[in-house]
Amino acid sequence: MASIRQFQVTFDCADPERVGRFWCEVLGYTPAPPPAGFADWDGFNRTLPPEQGGAWFACSDPSGVGPRLFFQRVPEGKVAKNRAHLDVRVGTGLVGEERLAVLEAEAARLVALGAVVVQVLRADGVNESCISMQDLEGHEFCLD
């Protein structure tokens, strides 16, 4: 039997810290501590060549249950729809108008942080409602 492995989710982006801090707010994650010997990330980044400073950001679930998120700077911008995306599970166990109200309230909170609502998909008798969104740099995700 194969062992269960931990995994992280990696985002390519232009501004790793900005996008990473957005996702910390979305998920209640905490930023990774600075490397040993540094009081903060700014101090660490000042020791690097300018082009390497701020090249990545990481955060994790403080409970240790969720995967680590890693954000890395890449030179190219996003040009196509993601082939994978995160489903942020805020409506689990809820149905109908109650579910939609919870999803819309969370969408409003995330829009205030810089997210964009792409589409509200209403319950259709087969599937429950969900809201398709994009983060600060256009990474797609769903409120589910």
Rank of each mutant, 00 (worst) to 15 (best):
P35Q: 13
P35C: 11
P35A: 13
A36W: 11
A36I: 10
G37W: 03
F38S: 11
F38L: 11
F38R: 02
A39E: 15
A39R: 10
D40W: 01
W41N: 09
D42S: 15
D42P: 08
D42G: 12
G43M: 11
G43S: 13
N45F: 07
N45V: 10
T47A: 08
L48C: 06
P49F: 04
P49C: 03
P50M: 00
P50E: 09
E51G: 01
G53V: 08
G54V: 15
G54K: 15
A55I: 09
W56P: 02
F57V: 08
F57T: 10
A58Q: 13
A58N: 06
C59P: 01
C59K: 00
S60M: 05
S60D: 05
D61T: 07
D61V: 13
P62N: 02
P62A: 03
S63R: 10
S63I: 03
G64S: 02
G64W: 06
P67F: 04
R68Y: 06
F71P: 05
Q72A: 08
Q72Y: 05
Q72N: 04
Q72P: 00
R73I: 09
R73T: 10
G77I: 01
K78H: 03
K78F: 01
V79M: 03
A80C: 09
A80E: 08
K81W: 07
K81L: 13
K81C: 08
R83Q: 14
R83P: 10
A84F: 14
A84L: 10
A84T: 13
L86I: 15
D87E: 09
V88E: 01
V88C: 10
R89F: 02
R89A: 09
V90D: 02
V90H: 05
G91W: 13
T92W: 02
V95N: 04
V95R: 13
G96M: 14
E97I: 13
E97W: 12
E98H: 00
R99M: 11
R99F: 07
L100M: 08
L100W: 01
L100S: 09
V102Y: 07
L103Y: 01
L103V: 00
E104Q: 09
E104L: 14
A105K: 00
A105V: 01
E106D: 03
E106L: 00
A107Q: 03
A107E: 03
L110V: 03
L110E: 02
L110N: 05
A112K: 00
A112R: 06
